[in-house]
Design a binder for these strands. Structure first.
Lengths: 224, 224
DNA sequence: GGCTGTGAAGACCTTCACAGCC
DNA sequence: GGCTGTGAAGGTCTTCACAGCC
């Protein structure tokens, strides 16, 4: 079966690097640059130059030998592959301190991932906007998801409630979930989950620090 | 050269899974279990059974065929490998909303990673403890790091300040840094960096959601 | 029957070496 | 000289198949 898709096969690690490249290109463009070399892209993202070229060769021969890559064309392609050529409304459940921190971050809105609504079950929190985002009762989730055409949900509630919240998100039609709760979520096929867990990160660090390692060496810099 | 170390070579992905196994063992132990099968460990962490057995075989033949793995022995070994057999004091720089959220999380203290001090340069924040943690001026970092014997630092300041804060952490002697700032940090060899970036996670999700993918499929569930 | 342990195979990802273009 | 592009090699991680034990 021929691959009709315009998007080449790109691995999970490559997606993360693409995201870093895109950010760097945005900065370089803001600084007035019109093209950029794989070496500079590499230095500013913490990967090797060959890796950058290999990654970018996947999306076609955009680079000019001796010159580097044209920033506008590269951004257009990367943006298309990452799905950044549109706006992705996001909903958030769990308006605790972490949820509040995310709601106060204007970066997501600026980058095309506006948190359009947040949900909780605490009557005290409902109705009082945080960072300009309205807070609704969790029961309104399906309605708002449909109305706003949201596909992505963020879970910032307690570990105890996370699976229940996840189930309701799936029920409401969300197909991608980013969770900060320290539990493994079960989802039906077709739904993507990403988990951010600070404790796991700290334990990864204590692993490299623990006595017994022969020599300190750089740990790679995955984007977490 | 013979490997005198008691710790087998364990890959980065394996470390993350070990962390998940450890958490699950803790839960199972709390529920009164004394042994656990690879299948159950697998289901509760979202990895495959073979993967669990392969991982655990690295640390010696602790399992009993037909019975599963003895929880206490397994936890002891995993804990030793992850470096959880001691307490790791942590310092944090940047008492904004994200920093505050982390300071209010009691989980880190309970799990052996107490945030013993936080730092900022905003006079309004200095001196007012958050979540029981004292807030000092950034200039005191080296002193507190030495006094508390901290090795791990968390960066929750703005992107602009992150590299400077990172440099001061390294100067103060920290060897492991967990950063939430969306910039690639440069550190000397011997210092480990982990980065958590919500926007990169969201872009990873928009990648799987973008139109053009032939069929929805599960994205693996890496832990942050 | 249920379960662990492990060499071999496979899939995946990165690095190397070098060809090719400006 | 500077830089990109890419097949081949190398390395790492996961899955398979099945042996072995309770």
């Amino acid at each position: 079966m021929p691959d009709r898709s315009e998007t080449p096969k790109v691995s999970q690690p490559a997606v993360r690097r693409f995201s870093l490249y895109y950010r760097t290109l945005l900065e370089a463009q803001g600084a007035g640059a019109v093209s950029i070399s794989s070496r500079e892209l590499a230095e500013r993202t913490g990967v090797t130059g060959v890796q950058v070229r290999k990654d970018l060769s996947l999306i076609g021969s955009l680079g000019k030998r001796g010159l580097g890559y044209p920033i506008p064309a590269l951004m257009r392609e990367l943006g298309r592959i990452l799905g950044l050529d549109r706006r992705w409304p996001v909903v958030l459940v769990g308006v605790g301190s972490l949820g509040t921190a995310l709601l106060n971050n204007v970066r997501f809105r600026r980058k095309g991932f506006p948190i359009v609504a947040a949900f909780d079950i605490d009557a005290v929190k409902i109705g009082v906007p945080v960072g300009g985002t309205p807070i609704y009762h969790l029961d309104l989730l399906p309605h708002v998801v449909r109305q706003q055409e949201a596909w992505i949900g963020i879970i910032t509630c307690s570990a105890d409630a996370a699976q229940l919240v996840c189930d309701r998100m799936v029920e409401a039609g969300l197909q991608a979930i980013l969770t900060y709760a320290p539990v493994t979520l079960e989802v039906p096929p077709g739904v993507s989950v990403r988990q951010v867990d600070t404790l796991v990160e700290l334990e990864t660090l204590s692993f490299v620090l623990r006595p017994g390692r022969e020599l300190s060496e750089d740990v790679d810099r995955p984007v977490g």
